[in-house]
């Protein structure tokens, strides 16, 4: 006896296969697996952390080394030309030497110390973000940080600007008496400039 093909059976089998294919492609019916995002820092968190370390280290140097030995104990001076004068590097120079060492290690991020009233005009803000940010932190009396993105030399950066505050009498005394300082009325805890931390984002 010949078996005759049952059209209805063939149609049903085809439909079942089609459903199975679609289901496997779309994941229909699969159990959901919870995907947790990897933990990490945002650029802002990284910049804040870096600034905390920089400010603390420089604060210790300014208070416990420069202010103590130069102004209190008066056993050694701090001088811009510290090697020639056999003196202590200025806190700003200690900061900048650290920044240079970080750059030399190709750490990726860079940082600098700038001011709207710099003794050395090379430390005037250059980029638009620096100009806006330094004014912002000064106007906010150091209470608010400034964060922005900028493109420099075709590369994108997250830039954070933090108020640089006169933490010690050594700061105001030197700047107020320096012949190249455009301001001579700084007081303790004034905003004297800003620390700019730049992190590449691509």
């Amino acid at each position: 006896m010949k078996h005759q093909k049952n059209p209805k059976m063939i149609l049903a089998a085809g439909a079942a296969v089609a459903v199975a294919v679609v289901a496997s492609i779309t994941g229909c019916g699969k159990t959901e697996v919870a995907i947790t995002k990897p933990a990490g820092f945002t650029p802002q968190q990284m910049a804040d952390a870096l600034f905390t370390v920089m400010a603390s280290d420089r604060g210790v140097y300014t208070k416990q080394v420069v202010n103590r030995l130069q102004n209190e104990d008066q056993v050694i001076k701090a001088s811009e030309h510290w090697k020639d004068d056999k003196a202590l590097p200025l806190p700003a120079q200690m900061f900048r030497m650290g920044a240079e060492a970080v750059t030399a290690k190709n750490a990726g991020f860079t940082y600098s110390l700038l001011s709207l009233w710099p003794i050395n005009k090379q430390n005037t803000p250059q980029t638009d973000v620096e100009k806006t940010g330094l004014k912002f932190v000064a106007d906010s009396l150091g209470k608010t940080n400034y964060y922005a993105e900028e493109t420099l030399g075709g590369k994108k950066y997250f830039t954070a600007i933090y108020a640089d505050v006169a933490v010690s009498p050594a700061c105001v005394k030197c700047h107020n008496n320096h012949e190249d300082s455009p301001r001579t009325d700084f007081k303790l805890n004034d905003v004297m400039g800003g620390v700019v931390v730049r992190i590449p984002t691509e």
């Binding site: 860079t110 250059q126 420099l152 030399g153 590369k155 590449p200």
Partner: peptide
């Protein structure tokens, strides 16, 4: 005490000078 070291110009803030 190089007045114009390479590191001065690899700082992104000086990119416009380049």
């Amino acid at each position: 005490n190089d007045s114009h070291p390479k590191s001065k110009f690899t700082d992104p803030r000086n990119a416009s000078r380049l």
